[in-house]
């Protein structure tokens, strides 16, 4: 069953066509990983899924609702149910770790301070950072920043969590920790996740479904095994990291 669907979406930034008649299904209660070349438009798909971008044509449907039909106020409410973990964490550098994670609860709910503190501690504990509440983002390592970003994204129990390059630029141990965290958080929330990544090892560990984006469209979609066995030479060249093949360098 689909949780979300991007249907025939075309999107341009100026003269550049980023997505061209792109269609992608996001299965409910599963992790869908999106792979593709740098600049292919993967992060743009995440932004379409939480309404931060609007397609030039085509539809973005989440839980049977076409996002284009939502009024601004409803779109804001919709976004409150979608977690977004940014590539560089995008923590608010004037706030402590605890305040960053608490922000969506403070602004979007009527929870008391005591309740918020309890939830923030529990969420930070779930990403292994219960002792970092009072630290500033500038005091954290890259891996810790990502995990705080995860915590902020899931603190209000969203049904859909979007991860933009969660393991890029991190050492193998932290990559393993983050991959496990994404899988565990999805199970805990019993929700849906979409992960954009170049890290194929992590993707093959965490993905239930894999979609490959190339030249603005999804050219392969399936389970990890199906994508690994793909007969598409573009997919095979990408998976093997080969210079030789149909992908222009």
């Amino acid at each position: 069953m689909n949780f979300a669907r991007i249907e025939g979406v075309t999107l341009r930034f100026g003269d550049k066509i980023v997505l061209q008649d792109c269609t992608l299904d996001v299965k409910a209660r599963a992790i869908t990983c999106l792979i593709g070349l740098s600049g292919a438009g993967k992060s743009t798909i995440l932004r379409l899924l939480n309404g931060l971008r609007t397609p030039d044509s085509g539809r973005v449907i989440v839980k049977s609702t076409d996002l284009a039909t939502l009024k601004q106020r409803d779109l804001v409410k919709f976004r409150q149910k979608v977690g977004f973990s940014f590539q560089f964490a995008a923590l608010f550098d004037s706030l402590t770790v605890g305040e960053n994670v608490a922000l969506p609860l403070r602004e979007n709910t009527k929870m008391s301070d005591a309740e918020i503190t309890k939830v923030v501690h529990a969420t930070l504990e779930s990403v292994g950072l219960e002792n970092a509440v009072e630290q500033m983002p500038s005091e954290l390592s890259g891996g810790m920043l990502k995990r705080v970003g995860f915590a902020r994204a899931v603190v209000n129990n969203p049904e859909l969590v979007l991860y933009d390059e969660p393991t890029t630029g991190l050492d193998p141990i932290i990559t393993h920790v983050l991959t496990d965290t994404i899988k565990r958080l999805r199970r805990q929330l019993n929700g849906t996740a979409v992960v954009v990544s170049h890290d194929l090892d992590s993707i093959f560990v965490m993905a239930d479904y894999v979609a490959m984006l190339f030249e603005g469209a999804i050219i392969e979609y399936g389970t990890v095994e199906e994508v690994r066995r793909s007969a598409n030479p573009i997919v095979q060249q990408f998976l093997q990291g080969s210079e030789v093949g149909p992908i222009p360098l």
Binding site: R47, N50, L52, V76, K77, F78, R79, Q80, V82, F84, F86, Q87, F88, A90, L91, F92, D93, L103, P104, E107, N108, R152
Partner: peptide, 14 residues
């Protein structure tokens, strides 16, 4: 440039 503004919007905050 550090995506903090987009982060605010993604949290449903103006």
């Amino acid at each position: 440039v550090t995506e903090q503004i987009e982060a605010l919007e993604s949290l449903g905050l103006s």
